[in-house]
Simulated scan of single mutants.
Amino acid sequence: MIIHTLGPQETDSNDAAQYYIQHNALSKAQIVLSASYTDIINALPQYQNDFLLIPTAFKSVALNLTWGELHYQYLDQLELKDCFIHRLNPLVMIEHCQRKSGIAYSHPATAKLLAAKVHPQQMYYSASKYLAYQQYLHDGQYTLTNEKNIVLSSEEKIIARYEPQMIWSLYQIKGL
């Protein structure tokens, strides 16, 4: 069994894939991490009979697609096989108090949550919350990311912290 999901290893998607494998005693399963779900979706014909693990909070700016739209648009290529609940790593909203750039970095699925709290002048979307934090380190004033990925400096503060549950969907890729 090969499970395609979002990488790098620091992502909630990788954690959920690891959880699924352990919880279902799938010792021979392999996780393949991609830079974005867009990359996986665009390569579905190459992954026939493999699996796709994706959160129901999925949202792609590049594909202009949410999880619900993906579910229906790809009925011919994806067959829903399983769903499960697995908690995300705690999320934190961070402000770099010395930067007044007005720039925020976020995964598209969490961007509205971030924007509702901080009202950034510019929002840049990242393929993962981990990548959003990496980009924020360069010039961002705000980000929403996983708590486990951060190292706070004296110039930063946590604005909010969340511990959400997530529903994960496992699809078998039918190909074409």
Rank of each mutant, 00 (worst) to 15 (best):
K129D: 11
L113V: 15
L152D: 02
G102K: 07
H107T: 04
P108H: 08
A116N: 13
A116W: 11
Q141R: 02
M123C: 09
K148C: 01
K148A: 15
K117H: 13
E147I: 04
S154M: 00
K148M: 11
Y124N: 12
I158G: 03
K129Q: 14
Y124Q: 12
S153G: 04
Q135L: 15
A111E: 10
H107K: 10
Q121H: 07
V118F: 12
S154C: 03
Y142W: 14
S101P: 05
N146R: 04
E147W: 09
S101G: 03
E155N: 02
R99Q: 10
K157A: 00
Q121I: 11
L137W: 00
Q135V: 10
Y130Q: 10
E147D: 05
S101K: 05
K112F: 15
S128W: 07
L152S: 01
H107Q: 08
D139H: 07
I150K: 00
L144K: 00
P108M: 07
K129C: 15
S106T: 08
K148T: 11
Y130E: 11
V151M: 04
D139C: 11
Y130S: 11
E155S: 09
Y125Q: 07
A132H: 09
I150H: 01
T143S: 03
N146C: 08
S128T: 12
N149G: 06
Y105D: 06
Y125M: 09
G102S: 07
A116S: 13
I158H: 00
P108R: 10
Y142G: 02
G140W: 09
M123I: 14
H138N: 14
D139E: 09
H119N: 09
Q135A: 14
Q141F: 08
Y125L: 12
Y142F: 15
H138A: 14
Q122S: 10
V118C: 07
E155W: 00
Q135Y: 15
K129I: 12
E156D: 06
T110D: 13
Y130D: 12
Q141P: 01
Y142K: 03
A104Q: 04
Y133K: 03
N146E: 10
S154I: 00
Y142M: 06
I103H: 03
Q135P: 13
K112I: 11
H138I: 13
V118P: 07
A127Q: 11
D139A: 01
K148Q: 03
Y124C: 08
N146A: 10
S128I: 07
E155K: 00
Y130A: 14
Q141E: 12
A115I: 12
K129N: 14
A111S: 15
Y125D: 04
A115D: 09
S153P: 01
E155G: 02
Y105A: 09
I150M: 03
S101Y: 06
T110V: 15
